[in-house]
């Protein structure tokens, strides 16, 4: 039987926790930024678009290092946050979640934005004439209609988080039980003499996790589409 060792279990649990928090935490901001980019024209629109997409093209190590400079114990924001609120991101799983969220953010925003651009705005107009204010229309018409895009974006972002390596190891290091997610554990195993067997097992776990995420996304998006269109599509 394939049973997991405590170390593997820890890495798997940590990966899931980091991935979930990265997605859940960045979803509201992602929705807002996607809406800004899709619906608003303002000075700095192109700049915002570029900044959001930056983590997609930058080496993850660069992202991790920038995070360290900004949110590290001596960072621009990290120092005051630690001093006044006692928050610390460096070398914690929360830091790993932030690193994953930043790296996965472009995927989340892109997917929601594409979906937003496909929403028939005439439906929103119709809702306005029926007495619904802007926020009412946003939550009861727009968001339900972009739900497929939100689901796709969230699954993509989760998958990207699970595979995150460079930014995480740079920002929060590789501490077993604290910041050592599956890819980092795999890296450690590969670096250790005679760690091939452990590495192979971690590869299998990663594959199962990946398949699971894909299957879940497929089921979820089919369900959402059926709910929206009212029939199997």
């Amino acid at each position: 039987m394939f049973s997991l060792t405590p170390v593997e279990l820890e890495a798997l649990g940590l990966s899931l926790k980091v991935g979930l928090w990265a997605v859940v935490g960045s979803l509201p901001l992602g929705l807002f930024v996607a809406w800004l980019l899709a619906r608003c024209r303002f000075p700095g629109h192109g700049m915002l678009n570029a900044i959001v997409h930056l983590p997609l093209v930058l080496p993850p190590v660069v992202v991790g290092y920038v995070l360290l400079l900004v949110l590290g114990r001596n960072g621009v924001l990290g120092a005051p946050l630690h001093e006044w609120l006692g928050w610390s991101f460096a070398f914690t799983w929360q830091g790993a979640a932030i690193a994953s969220a930043v790296v996965a953010f472009p995927l989340l925003v892109r997917s929601i934005r594409l979906s937003l651009e496909l929403v028939d705005r005439r439906l929103e107009t119709a809702a306005r004439t029926l007495g619904a204010g802007r926020m009412d229309v946003f939550w009861n018409i727009t968001v339900p209609l972009v739900l497929p895009g939100i689901v796709t974006g969230a699954v993509l972002a989760f998958a990207r988080s699970i595979g995150e390596f460079g930014a995480t190891i740079t920002f929060v290091s590789n501490i077993p039980g604290i910041t050592q997610t599956l890819p980092l554990a795999l890296y450690t195993a590969v670096q250790t003499p005679g760690g091939d067997a452990i590495a192979l097992r971690l590869v299998i776990i990663s594959c199962i996790l990946a398949f699971g995420a894909l299957a879940a996304s497929e089921i979820l998006s089919r369900h959402v589409r059926r709910r929206i269109l009212g029939h199997g599509a």
């Binding site: 005439r122 439906l123 119709a126 809702a127 339900p144 209609l145 709910r227 009212g230």
Partner: peptide, 10 residues
């Protein structure tokens, strides 16, 4: 009432 009914599909 519009030319296209504009019913909310969801």
């Amino acid at each position: 009432v519009f030319q296209d009914a504009r019913l909310f599909p969801h």
